[in-house]
Design a protein around this nucleic acid. Sequence first.
DNA 1: CGGCATCCTCGATGATACTG
DNA 2: CAGTATCATCGAGGATGCCG
Lengths: 128, 128
Amino acid sequence: MTGGAQLMQAEAEERYEAFHTECPARDVVDHVTSRWGIWVLISLRSNDLRFYELRKSIQGISEKMLAQTLRALVQDGLVWRKVEPTTPPQVTYGLTEFGRDVGEPLTELFDRITRRLSPRSAGARPAH
Amino acid sequence: MTGGAQLMQAEAEERYEAFHTECPARDVVDHVTSRWGIWVLISLRSNDLRFYELRKSIQGISEKMLAQTLRALVQDGLVWRKVEPTTPPQVTYGLTEFGRDVGEPLTELFDRITRRLSPRSAGARPAH
DNA sequence: CGGCATCCTCGATGATACTG
DNA sequence: CAGTATCATCGAGGATGCCG
């Protein structure tokens, strides 16, 4: 495992290098894997939600952090934002194609972890 | 589309609820999506690595954070740790089955983001 | 080499209050 | 309802030094 592994590592290293430095992808990854980003994306995966709905959907998030997280995700092109100029105002958020694209592995990640940790609800699997 | 969506949301909400509270999965997700956790897992995906190799593989990580991140991941059962009592000591890390299981969607996430951002879209993005 | 302990800083986060 | 602004805090994370 030490012999040929070095070559593979060289490849991997080169690839991640672009990434750890100034690649814009780094920011997106940070936003997605941010404390609240992942839950926003997963929540919006099932359907579009308004600010208020989103807030109560994600337990423990403050208005500030929700707004902040949403802003970052909208800027990254993962989430769209639709404003209805009614009274009271109504703002809806949803996933863009990119957002759904990213949300899929995110949900998969979440599923695999919960599946592994709650053997009673999703079939017992032997721990490593 | 908005009508039936409420029901789906009810399901989703109930499901995530268990999760935002005290589910152990929450901790694992936090560790995996922590600032360095994701890179450790992705790095170890290609092959097992020693502490030192891991450190230079992940640009910008400090020894402290690497050790801390590794400890959490080992505790969560995502990473194994093998100590060779030689001089100098030699410690190797690698992914458990669980770790590989989790690393897959993580890599997929990373790939989708870079794929989306790589094609010449550099420079057109607003910095925040 | 691998890693832990300590100190210290800074930014993310939360609470509160205020607008449109 | 959907934010924004301000302030206070708390802990993640970096720097340094010591040890097996």
